[in-house]
């Protein structure tokens, strides 16, 4: 049902745009192609920013830094009653969308799909966007290199999201 609504929504929205445009005497085909021309330019414009960010994140993940952090934080997390398996996901979800999905699938495979740890991980995965990807694409598209408060606010919101996900899941699934 949910997937049907989101699938049907787009074609209906497109029809609405076109009908509204035609009623307002907009030459829809010509206008469409004019606008679409920008698509190439914008996509190419974000490449340098995306390369910079993804290389840094890729290197960081490949170095094993996240596992190392998880190992160090393990006693502390156990003391707090937080499953240590969730830490890599908590870190990666702000850095890499595909990485976070991979880690989540791994957690689900080891603990089982109905385990509260898996459910908590699902809430973590679903409740956030890949902060560093969004920042580099959006700022990159208009050539902004000084991100100001967007970085710290994004990180704070992510941290808050992790803590809230843990609390809410503890109430909902345990």
């Amino acid at each position: 049902m949910i997937s049907f609504i989101s699938v049907a929504f787009i074609p209906l929205l497109i029809c609405f745009f076109l009908i509204y445009g035609t009623c307002k005497r907009v030459p829809v085909y010509e206008t469409f192609t004019q606008g679409a021309k920008e698509g190439f330019e914008i996509s190419v414009r974000i490449i340098p920013y995306l390369v910079a960010m993804m290389v840094a994140v890729g290197m960081f993940r490949a170095s094993g830094a996240i596992d190392l952090l998880a190992k160090w934080a393990n006693p502390f997390l156990t003391w707090l009653g937080i499953p240590a398996d969730l830490l890599p996901l908590a870190i990666v979800r702000s850095l890499s969308g595909s990485g976070a999905r991979g880690i989540f699938a791994e957690i689900a495979a080891t603990h089982g799909a109905d385990n509260p740890i898996t459910k908590t991980a699902a809430v973590m995965l679903g409740s956030s966007e890949t902060t560093f990807y969004v920042l580099s694409v959006y700022f990159g598209s208009v050539g902004i290199t000084k991100f100001r408060h967007a970085v710290s606010a994004g990180i704070i919101a992510d941290l808050a999201g992790i803590i809230i996900a843990l609390i809410v899941s503890k109430i909902a699934f345990y």
Binding site: I14, F17, L18, Y20, G21, C23, K24, V26, V28, T31, F32, T33, Q34, G35, A36, G39
Partner: peptide, 9 residues
């Protein structure tokens, strides 16, 4: 492209 139509109309 669609957005351009939405803006123009």
């Amino acid at each position: 492209g669609l957005m351009k139509i939405a803006h123009a109309s």
